[in-house]
Design a protein around this nucleic acid. Structure first.
Length: 773
DNA sequence: ACTGCTAATATTTTT
DNA sequence: TATTAGCAGT
């Protein structure tokens, strides 16, 4: 235990020690927000508040994990054990599992990701014989999502003439019908989508006062991070839970609100004082992260926004380097510049790969950069984009696992019923779907009794046979699940179902990488089982594994120890910091995005996004833009982003152009603005015409990012002579010291204090520990 | 019922 | 441009 207050400045101390009553902390970029939150929780626990009574909601699972670790290393011991900390989605998914039966859901309900949702909608649209050109599944889902986030249920929708008229005016009068069918289908499948996790929580808390009372009583101290990015649904949950004790602390920065597109409502933070009239407001304005130049440049840009709270972010840090601005001839040239610069800084300033981040507006921009980094042999990690768990081969295998847990999950069932091909075609499927509908049963129930019901719904003998075989196989997996661990079952599924065999038949590079991906999934299952078993309160169930991956973000999959350059969208970079940050693609119509140029609000969100990007940098930031770029398969011309002009030139180091910052004349084909004088400091990229000819074959390493679980073998042999004070090494948690050992030799547990992860109780039987002495 | 081709679609951001 | 879904032919 240490003196919590000595690491804090005066204002931070106030924020930490104000524990009672509503509190809003307006935390400017880099002002030590995470530190304040962790210290505040540690302080609460030290004061004697049971960690059981504390709820902390974060924006990513990664943030939650890191904070929890920091808290336990601050206060030591296991006092923080009962602390609930996680994203809205994961915390309330857990609560919903416990209470699901009240809402008519099974407790092992499936969580649909957006892909699943779109697929369901697509099927519904075709079942309803609607034109999918008018009802674009993605758009429809977006519409439904925004209803849900604003707590407009199906019934509320049909009671609201304005909404109906709006959809009619948009020539989409059937939206309500689709919404209704979608909700019913999800319910029937025992599934919730992302928005449901919040909407159903609201339903739970309003319909069952005793449930509300229970959680109100439990969560006496509530903290919400990134409050500026909460949506209405989240806002109502927080408000309901906090209304009894009103010990609610929200932390946020209106200047960093970047999720309006998915329903985030900046009013939540702007109106906090209206909701809690005795709320205290504490502004954290001193930036500890970035150089003066970075802070000033960021302030200059954000000042152009109209909607914001008054705030003055400042720093005592060094002035730092000016921000280089590089004008590239093409996206390839831009990428080569970035790669060359990283190469140089590594040589001249002993920087490591992981000191660098390259941030872009859209995922598609990573391609060119990846190529340039590969040419220079710089290790990198791309976050986001098509995630590992969205790959087809992975989704297929996961669909099997999902059906084992929740046989009602129709989406998963239909995905695998004829994969690998087993002669169950569309005709059969249609009969099944129609039959299930007529009998008012779900498809799995039909399959359960296929021998009896098969003929009734018009199936012939051989088909019934095939379906029965399929279902017998699924049931055998379910039996296996009772005795074997998740990894064993998944392995069995992959082999018995024929998935592995089918994939292995394809020996093209893509096919090989698919097999590797499945192997990788197996590794991560193995890792999951190992890790959960080692933890005293671990949960190695398949159900928990599936929930974890459904709610995992791509950030959760990186491996901190790897020395790699990070590539990600600016959205993903929120909350992170890096010594050197490249912000690339600073062009009009790209950043700000052309989709955002219609309204002031949208443009202001882009500007906040730029602010977030720039304030990720600690020591040095770089700007680049390209005058031509490959987009939609065409070369398009680009002009420098307006955000560049909003920065005072004295903060920029303009490399290879005459850049007239404040000029308003951006219309001329920039020949008069930027003539000649390309600095020869860096080699030019290849002529865009040729750039795809040389694409090196994608090495498999780059295709399997994700799992950090490597198949490891137990080290060190017998641990029976492990004793107090021993230094040990764990392949996941790192170095630690043995604090205590308990239990009989067969099931001995050891409490180990890890240097970086805090204390953990491990089962020696499973823990792969190496004694270091 | 399966295979291979054509056509459409995508590129704003994601729990 | 790159991927994928849907369709038509066998």
């Amino acid at each position: 235990m240490k003196d919590l207050f000595k690491d804090l400045n005066e204002i931070q101390k106030q924020a930490v020690s104000t524990t009672e009553g509503p509190l809003m902390i307006i935390a400017g970029a880099g002002s030590g927000k995470t530190r304040v939150l962790t210290y505040r929780i540690a302080h609460l626990i030290e004061k004697g508040i049971d960690s059981f009574n504390i709820l902390a909601l974060t924006f990513t699972n990664k943030a939650a994990r890191e904070m929890k670790e920091r808290i336990s290393s601050l206060i030591g011991g296991t006092e923080a054990k009962n602390l609930w900390m996680g994203t809205f989605h994961s915390v309330f998914a857990r609560i919903l599992r416990a209470e699901a039966h009240k809402l008519g859901f099974p407790s092992n309900f499936t969580i649909y990701d957006s892909q699943d949702s779109v697929n369901v909608i697509k099927k519904l649209i075709s079942e309803m014989q609607l034109d999918s050109d008018i009802y674009k599944p993605k758009q429809v889902l977006g519409r439904i999502s925004s209803y849900k986030n604003n707590l407009i249920t199906v019934r509320a929708y049909f009671n609201n003439p304005e909404l109906i008229e709006a959809d009619q005016a948009a020539m989409k009068p059937k939206i309500g019908e689709i919404y209704k069918a979608y909700v019913e289908r999800c319910f029937k499948s025992g599934a919730m989508d992302f928005d449901d996790l919040l909407l159903r929580t609201n339903e739970l808390l309003t319909r069952f006062p005793e449930v509300l009372a229970k959680y109100q009583d439990r969560f006496r101290y509530i903290m919400v991070d990134e409050y500026q990015d909460t949506n209405h649904s989240q806002y109502l949950i927080v408000k309901a839970l906090a209304s009894r004790f009103e010990n609610i602390c929200v932390v946020g920065d209106d200047a960093q609100s970047i999720y309006a597109f998915r329903g985030a409502n900046i009013r939540n933070i702007l109106d906090f004082q209206k909701d809690y009239s005795d709320a205290k407001i504490i502004p954290l304005e001193q930036n500890y992260r970035s150089t003066q130049i970075i802070v000033e440049a960021a302030n200059e840009v954000i000042a152009k926004n109209r909607d914001q709270l008054e705030k003055n972010v400042w720093t005592q840090n060094n002035e730092g380097d000016k921000i280089p601005l590089y004008r590239a001839l093409s996206d390839a040239d831009e990428a080569n510049y970035v790669a060359a610069e990283i190469f140089n800084l590594k040589l001249t300033q002993q920087k490591r790969n992981k000191d660098f981040a390259i941030l872009y507006r859209t995922n598609a921009q990573s391609r060119a950069i990846e190529e340039a980094l590969r040419k220079k042999n710089i290790a990198y990690q791309v976050y986001g984009g098509l995630s590992f768990y969205q790959r087809k081969e992975i989704k297929d295998l996961l669909a099997y696992l999902r059906v084992l847990v929740n046989p009602r999950d129709q989406e998963a069932l239909l995905r695998i019923i004829n994969y690998p091909a087993r002669g169950i075609g569309n005709t059969t499927l249609n009969k099944l779907i129609v039959g299930a509908d007529q009998q008012d049963q779900s498809i799995n129930e039909i399959l359960e009794n296929i021998e009896l019901l098969g003929q009734a719904i018009g199936l012939n003998k051989p088909t019934i046979e095939k379906l029965a075989n399929f279902w017998t196989m699924i049931k055998s997996f379910q039996v296996l699940l009772k005795t074997e661990d998740v990894y064993e079952v998944a392995m069995k599924v992959a082999i018995t179902s024929g998935i592995l065999k089918t994939l292995k038949e394809d020996d093209t590079p893509e096919g090989i990488s698919r097999v590797e991906n499945v192997q990788e999934l197996m590794n991560s299952l193995q890792g999951f089982v190992d890790e959960q078993r080692q933890l005293e309160d671990g949960d190695p169930s398949l159900n928990y594994f599936l929930e974890n991956i459904a709610l995992a973000s791509d950030l959760d999959n990186g491996n901190e120890e790897d020395d790699k350059v990070s590539l990600m969208t600016i959205h993903l970079a929120k909350g992170l910091e890096f010594p050197v940050v490249f912000i690339v693609g600073l062009e009009e119509n790209l950043f700000p995005s052309q989709m955002s140029l219609n309204t002031r609000q949208e443009l202001e969100e882009e500007r906040r996004l730029f602010y977030v990007a720039l304030t990720r940098a600690e020591k040095k930031a770089y700007f680049t833009y390209a005058t031509t770029r490959f987009r939609w398969g065409k070369i398009v011309d680009g002009e420098p982003s307006r955000f560049l002009e909003e920065i005072n030139n004295k903060h920029l180091e303009i490399l290879n152009i005459e850049f007239k910052g404040s000029t308003k004349n951006r219309s001329g084909l920039d020949s008069d603005l930027f003539d000649g004088d390309f600095s020869p400091r860096y080699p030019k990229g290849p002529n865009p015409k040729y750039q795809n000819k040389q694409e090196p074959p994608r090495s498999p390493q780059n295709l399997k990012p994700i799992s950090n679980a490597k198949l490891t073998h137990p080290v060190g042999g017998s641990l029976s002579d492990l004793k107090l004070g021993d230094h040990v090494l764990h392949d996941r948690f790192g170095k630690g010291i043995v604090k205590s050992i308990e239990g009989d030799p067969e099931n001995a547990k050891a409490l180990i204090d890890f240097e970086n992860e805090g204390e953990k109780k491990l089962l020696l039987k499973f823990a792969k520990l190496k004694i270091l002495n």
